[in-house]
Design a binder for these strands. Structure first.
Lengths: 230, 230
DNA sequence: GACAATCAGATTGTCGACAATCTAACAAGA
DNA sequence: TCTTGTTAGATTGTCGACAATCTGATTGTC
């Protein structure tokens, strides 16, 4: 008999689609930080009743992209410099751990996937598609988390980058110009293929610090004039 | 003028209460791993409609205590030895980070709170209240996360211990006898008050390993005979 | 003019009913 | 006997309407 691998059936519920739509809207900056989500308006726009919309919003609240105040409303989270600082400092620790766990498990499939994702980043960079560039860069970075074979770690990281992706998108949108950042990934990929784990860990930490400084200065600028949502 | 600190008003929505009820039921082992949650039955028992119940369940799904399969149902997560292993190995990393961040911020208020929580553990231990013992021990342990002044770290840890608490409860329930474990906390508190940060980190790691081995053996025992939920 | 009480509008929280889907038992046919 | 089609029951997903709550504007009083 032929051995075939079937992927799981797509979640065909309105709720799941709504979650995806809203998440994308938030991560691309379509919905601004602090902005209130009017349930009636959104449900009418999506041609959906409020029940699945509300359930979707509860999920995103737990995911950390929205915050909810009873009888007042649900809002996109606000970006503070401290949030970015917190997220990044934790990310550094998780990176070291992920690399440590992934290191002994690297094989040809890992290297191939690493190259594939690296190519995706380079393509997005050439096309000047900043949104896609962020997505692909995070996917490249996420490989070590997928490979670390620790479901809790992966889940934790995904929650973390949800927010980081949002911050990045805001940053890019504000500057309105693509970040080159290609050579940084070049070095990262090379080190991840090498034999010096400590060097890879060190580079990951420093590479992150680079983008981090840009983001922080942007966030501090935001905090000078409070947003309308606050 | 007198400076008064007001605590936030309680969330007076059915949804929030349902979440608390369900979470407690799961963490105390009242709801078994793998068990299906029948919406109609639960909503009738709680005298609530399905809408707020379903929203509450979405929150707990995102919290990692439940899993949902469209049109099939929502289930309490299954406990596997690997889950415990993953959670604990991540917890070790987070502990080191939390201690490092907390260390320079320790003051008299920190030490007082440390003692207060330690007393709570000792009280629960004397009363042979295993559930409370788990709760208080986790609260003692959580102090470094609250003090680390990193909201993302705290949030991450809270998600982690939700599951760890569930595992512990199952373990205790299976053994049906309280774990002494008082002297371990004694050493921990002493080290957290001391001047050697490395020693505190080392102890946290080893202390965790202790309970960890017990839990793992329990989980491996569970996996011999598959649960009815699977 | 300042302040408290009241009220209308809008929005969120909750409810009961209906639609879509799954499961398991049963029947029909090769 | 095994497989396939059908059907009834139960359960989840979704809907539209109502109740509870908040916001702000207005009014009345001092």
């Amino acid at each position: 008999m032929v051995k075939t691998d079937f992927s799981p059936i797509a979640d065909t519920t309105r709720r799941a689609e709504i979650v995806a739509l809203l998440r994308r809207a938030i991560l691309t900056g379509q919905l601004e930080p602090g902005q209130k989500l009017n349930e009636l308006r959104i449900s009418e726009q999506m041609r959906v009743s409020r029940a699945p919309l509300r359930e979707a919003m509860r999920e995103l609240v737990q995911e950390g992209l929205l915050t909810s105040i009873p009888y007042a409303g649900t809002f996109v989270i606000d970006v503070t410099a401290k949030d970015i600082d917190d997220a990044y400092s934790l990310n550094k620790v998780l990176d070291e751990f992920a690399i440590e766990r992934t290191w002994p498990q690297r094989d040809q499939r890992f290297f191939d996937e690493l190259d594939r994702r690296h190519e995706a980043v380079k393509l997005a960079t050439r096309n000047l598609d900043t949104t896609r560039q962020i997505e692909t860069a995070l996917q490249l970075h996420g490989l070590i988390y997928e490979w670390a074979d620790n479901s809790v770690l992966l889940e934790t990281w995904q929650r973390l980058i949800s927010r980081l992706q949002m911050y990045f998108a805001l940053h890019q949108q504000a500057r309105n110009e693509p970040v080159p950042a290609e050579d940084v990934h070049e070095t990262y990929v090379r080190l991840m293929k090498g034999t010096d784990m400590r060097a890879a860990q060190r580079h990951a930490r420093e590479h992150i610090n680079l983008d981090f400084e840009q983001l922080l200065s942007y966030a501090r600028g935001l905090e000078q004039r409070p947003s309308k949502g606050a």
